[in-house]
């Protein structure tokens, strides 16, 4: 099956600045993909090129099999886009704003009303639906934004920093909504730098740095590539020569002390083997805990290197 998004050496240059540098991105249908990177790394620029809102300097883009520059309407009919700062017509109500979007998509009359009503309900906005958007809170606007892009019944939605400015509870709720959309079969492309959130909803992530996306994969994959080992086992134990004993276990990459415990990096879940060597070495074992490294660790390690590069 054709990929939802496919780019080939996609490049955007602003005079001397290369905002996006030969990007090769492939997002499969039904997938939730996270674009991750520090400020100014080219996430928004990439999104704008996917939608034909800015012209690529070079390279190819295919969104749902179409070229957004040549066939903008065919793409926009099937793709929903939530900009990083979403704006509405303040003097119109939430419902009226959605009605305008529906009409622009050729959807009017009873069918439009029913769809709008259902979406407002889904987003928990029924009470506020007939109030001017001026009176909405940030979180309500964001949910209205999600309703707005769903009006056209898209196959792919692109969200730029969707949880920006939301409180933790609202952000959590918002991510739940996105998760539900994935279950309905939607493809989601999400740009963010809130790692914990991206990790929670994304099937795969791509790490941007200075316009380049060198690392793509699931979080454990990235962890293996950036940190070396995908499994971190925290061993709480006391005894002589434990470090050497654990390091000798096949599959263990690295052992380092952390407080009164040890952190073992391993290629797989080696907890039974580690327990065995600790006991065999005469050590006293208090606990074994498996922690897969989080995206923030990957991120810090990866972008930490960049800063060293730059320094």
């Amino acid at each position: 099956m054709m990929a939802a998004i496919e780019t080939q050496d996609l490049t955007k240059r602003y005079r001397s600045l290369v905002a996006v540098d030969r990007l090769n991105l492939r997002v499969e249908r039904g997938e939730v993909f996270g674009l991750l990177g520090p400020n100014g790394s080219g996430k928004t620029t990439t999104i704008l090129m996917l939608l034909g809102l800015t012209e690529p300097t070079a390279g190819q883009v295919r969104v749902l099999g179409r070229d957004p520059v040549r066939e903008p309407l065919a793409v926009k009919r099937r793709v929903g886009y939530l900009p990083d700062t979403v704006g509405f017509y303040d003097e119109l109500t939430g419902r009226e704003n959605l009605r305008y979007t529906a009409a622009l998509n050729g959807l009017t009359g009873r069918r439009a009303e029913e769809r709008i009503q259902a979406l407002l309900e889904q987003m928990g906005l029924l009470e506020a639906a007939d109030r001017p958007v001026r009176t909405y809170s940030r979180g309500m606007k964001q949910r209205l934004g999600l309703a707005d892009i769903l009006v056209k019944d898209p196959e792919l939605i692109i969200l730029d920093e969707p949880t920006l400015g939301l409180d933790p509870a609202a952000a959590h709720e918002f991510l739940e909504l996105i998760g539900r959309l994935k279950n309905q079969g939607l493809t989601v492309l999400l740009a963010s730098h809130l790692l914990e959130q991206v990790q929670r909803v994304c099937d795969r992530v791509g790490l941007f740095r200075k316009g380049r996306m060198d690392l793509v994969g699931t979080v454990p994959e990235l962890a293996r590539r950036v940190l070396g080992g995908a499994y971190r086992i925290r061993v709480e134990a006391e005894g002589e020569g434990l470090r050497e004993a654990m390091a000798a276990v096949p599959g263990v990459l690295h052992v380092r002390p952390e407080g009164s415990a040890w952190v073992v990096e391993a290629e797989s879940d080696l907890r039974p083997a580690l327990a065995r060597v600790v006991v065999q070495a005469g050590g006293r074992l208090f606990g074994l805990e498996l922690g897969t490294p989080g995206l923030d660790e990957v991120y810090r390690a990866y972008y930490g290197e960049v800063q060293h590069d730059a320094a």
Partner: peptide
């Protein structure tokens, strides 16, 4: 941005 991401 929102309006121009509609099919017009």
């Amino acid at each position: 941005g929102r309006v121009l991401s509609q099919p017009i």
